[in-house]
């Protein structure tokens, strides 16, 4: 079976065994054909988030993708490529800090119900694989955008009953945050854990309005933001 890999300076094709996961195929190449092929991996079980790449233009976890004839593999987008399929995820980590995605003022003298738990159950399944960042077209025009996972995580904490200072979180996601999203849903389409950042961002916009913020792009309900020429284009 043939797969093609976009590497640092070349595009190369390799013959690999059939029926493998992409991660197993990458290791087969490394062992038998080209030891210099470089990629990231960890758990093999879709939970550590290390091995996300793009296959045929769509983000996947290498350990959870069964290879098909003529698959084309490339590194994640909007991340500096360090070597072959290995990218730099430092900047995405920085966005978590800027979004202040944590409990600011915890209080535990509250009752929490299963319904409260389920409200952000999916959001807290995030494995920080960076697939949603790679799929997000906003990064093409605004590299400072907080991006899907940081906003989803901010939402998860803002909805936590133990947070007694939701405004603090909301204050941190206004600039390059909730209003910069085009609601195109590419993030939702690629999340390996079935998280829906688009919906979370929509919800955060509602909470922002409650805290006195408004859409700086003047039409809060528009699909696209005039800044980058309309959401449908993406």
């Amino acid at each position: 079976m043939k797969i093609t890999i976009k590497r640092d300076k070349s595009v190369e094709s390799f013959e690999v065994s059939e029926g493998l996961t992409l991660l197993a195929a990458l290791y087969e190449i490394k062992e038998k054909q080209d030891a210099s092929l470089t990629f990231s991996s960890g758990c093999r079980a879709s939970i550590c988030g290390a091995c996300a790449v793009r296959v045929n233009g769509k983000e996947v976890l290498a350990c959870a993708h069964k290879i098909n004839e003529n698959d084309t593999v490339e590194p994640l987008q909007y991340h500096p490529v360090l070597r072959d399929l290995k990218v730099d995820k430092q900047k995405a980590k920085e966005t978590l800090k800027r979004a202040s995605a944590w409990l600011h003022q915890p209080q535990i003298s509250v009752e929490i119900t299963p319904e409260d738990e389920h409200r952000t159950e999916r959001q807290s399944d995030c494995i920080l694989c960076d697939s949603c960042y790679s799929a997000c077209p906003v990064f093409a025009v605004n590299p400072d955008f907080l991006g899907p996972f940081a906003l989803t995580r901010a939402y998860r904490y803002s909805e936590d009953k133990r947070e007694s200072n939701v405004k603090e979180i909301i204050d941190h996601i206004q600039t390059n945050g909730v209003w910069d999203c085009t609601l195109c849903g590419e993030c939702t389409a690629v999340c390996p854990k079935g998280i829906d950042p688009k919906m979370d961002i929509t919800m955060l916009r509602g909470t922002s309005l409650q805290h006195g913020y408004s859409d700086p792009n003047f039409t809060a309900q528009s699909f696209g933001t005039p800044d980058f020429g309309g959401g449908f284009g993406f």
Binding site: L103, I108, R156
Partner: peptide
């Protein structure tokens, strides 16, 4: 557990 609860671990909950 109390410490983890304070920092926000989303534990599964009991029905009321």
């Amino acid at each position: 557990i109390e410490w983890l609860e304070k920092i926000g671990v989303p534990f599964s909950r009991l029905p009321q």
